[in-house]
């Protein structure tokens, strides 16, 4: 029962979604399943939050290395959760003042917006920005013209890096009209629309075939590895 029922749930859900794209009568079933999926996806956020809290509470109770940071994680988690769930400091929506929780958490000046503006924005965007430094260091150390393939990679990177900025115009903008295709800015477009398109298109076709094959194996009950415990 632990394996057969989940397998049939997957088969029914999958075929309902697939058939809804082809048979108009099955369209409403597709809608029902999509709607349920959306709500389950939202509950998955709650599961994610719960898992995080559980993991850090365990870490804290075991006094694992770095448990002090778990206090910070849990503290910020709980404070954010309370502010958001109880809409602390949020006035009712002026259109529906009779409903106590009708106001949006995103109202300017609210505690929720404060967290967004002064915590989430700087923290997440700086995390992403950090990679600019590492990519520079990696380029210096690892980007070596060792063979034909590496040279192609390197030359393309140069064309794109220079062609997508004003440097391309300065360096090759003077090329005559008949050789305009060799200007760096045009070369970078050519690289993207011809070589990059060809490479990525082949990758996409390969992935599409793989997804279709794997999906059908799941829907026909051939692939059960996702249930855990081997492919039996």
């Amino acid at each position: 029962m632990k394996r057969i029922i989940p397998m049939w749930i997957a088969i029914i859900g999958g075929f309902a979604m697939m058939l809804s794209s082809f048979i108009p009568l099955a369209e409403s079933w597709g809608e029902v399943f999509a709607n349920v999926f959306n709500v389950v996806a939202a509950i998955a956020f709650v599961l994610g939050a719960g898992s995080l809290a559980k993991q850090h509470l365990e870490k804290l109770s075991r006094r694992d290395a770095g448990w002090g940071y778990s206090i910070i994680t849990l503290g910020s988690f709980i404070v954010t959760l309370l502010i958001g769930m109880f809409k602390i400091g949020i006035h009712p929506n002026p259109n529906f003042p009779q409903a106590a929780y009708s106001g949006s958490n995103n109202t300017e000046g609210s505690a929720w917006s404060w967290i967004y503006e002064y915590m989430i924005t700087p923290l997440t965007s700086t995390m992403f920005a950090l990679l600019a430094f590492f990519v520079a260091s990696a380029a210096f150390r690892a980007f070596r013209a060792k063979n034909t393939e590496a040279i192609l990679l390197l030359v393309t990177a140069f064309i794109v890096l220079l062609g997508r900025t004003f440097a391309g115009v300065v360096l090759t903008g003077w090329f005559p009209e008949w050789a305009s295709g060799l200007r760096l800015e045009n070369l970078s477009i050519y690289v993207m629309q011809v070589f990059n398109t060809a490479g990525n298109r082949a990758i996409m076709i390969g992935i599409a075939l793989g997804v279709a094959a794997t999906g059908l194996r799941i829907l026909f009950g051939i692939d059960r590895s996702w249930l855990g415990g081997g492919d039996a």
């Binding site: 979604m17 809608e31 999509a34 999926f37 959306n38 709500v39 996806a41 939202a42």
Partner: peptide
């Protein structure tokens, strides 16, 4: 929430 399922809907 729901990613592709929202698009489908």
């Amino acid at each position: 929430a729901g990613n592709e399922a929202v698009m489908k809907l």
